[in-house]
Design a protein around this nucleic acid. Structure first.
Length: 201
DNA sequence: AAATCATTCAACCGCTTAGCT
DNA sequence: CAGCTAAGCGGTTGAATGATT
């Protein structure tokens, strides 16, 4: 693939999974310029790097908030967090970002996914049980009543990305001047941040 | 061992809201 | 105040992976 200049005429928008190169560009840009103004980021991040970042501001923001941000915790929703999610959801409904604010390190997207794939599933199962078991009363299932969810425990033991390995200082972060061989898009946050640590230490 | 099904989660899309001129 | 633009939010989709047959 030949690299084209970042002129707007070539600026077709890229979609799909992010590559390591794109992540590095984004991380480096934010390290130097801070978060926010995502649209201008998307435009200028392509220019300041030798690689073009053909992503929308929207896409950049999402990638940063949900994945690249150093304080993002991944996997292992604890029982306490689960309980809190259920309580807050009962209180506020699908206000995921609001709920996420009360779970440090968790993103709205992650909570939303967790709710849909784990909790909601159990609620539906519970509803089915009730429909089958008894047709007496149509109980109004307030989504997230903890009594139903007690069995939805944290069966998942996903490897966690530990934010503690991050020293919190991105000020002088520069993308490494080498780019490791990427096998498609398969690489991890550990790779990125370890590269940063190697570079920044 | 291969095929199929189920689950998870990253990313996109469209709508709403907030801020600026 | 109205219109425009960018950011934020929630819903949905699709690819990847794991589990089961």
């Amino acid at each position: 693939m030949d690299k084209k200049p970042c002129n707007s005429e070539y600026a077709e928008v890229r979609k799909g999974p992010w590559t390591m190169e794109e992540d590095l560009i984004l991380i480096n840009y934010i390290a130097n310029h801070g978060e926010g103004v995502w649209n201008s980021l998307a435009k200028s991040a392509g220019n300041f790097s030798f690689l073009c970042l053909k992503r929308t501001g929207k896409s950049c923001r999402l990638r940063w908030l949900n994945y690249l941000r150093p304080d993002v915790r991944r996997g292992n929703i604890t029982p306490e967090e689960q309980l809190l999610i259920m309580e807050l959801h009962a209180k506020w409904g699908n206000r995921w970002s609001k709920i996420a604010k009360h779970l440090p390190g968790r993103t709205d997207n992650e909570i939303k996914n967790y709710w849909r794939t784990r909790i909601q599933k159990h609620i539906k199962q519970g509803e089915n049980m009730n429909e089958q078991g008894s047709s007496e009363k149509n109980i109004d299932h307030q989504e997230g009543t903890s009594s139903q969810m007690s069995s939805a425990g944290p069966a998942d033991t996903i490897e966690t990305y530990s934010p503690t390995s991050y020293n919190g200082n991105m000020d002088n972060f520069q993308a490494p001047n080498f780019l490791p061989e990427t096998n498609g898009n398969i690489w991890s946050m550990e790779d990125i941040w370890s590269m940063q640590l190697l570079n920044g230490d």
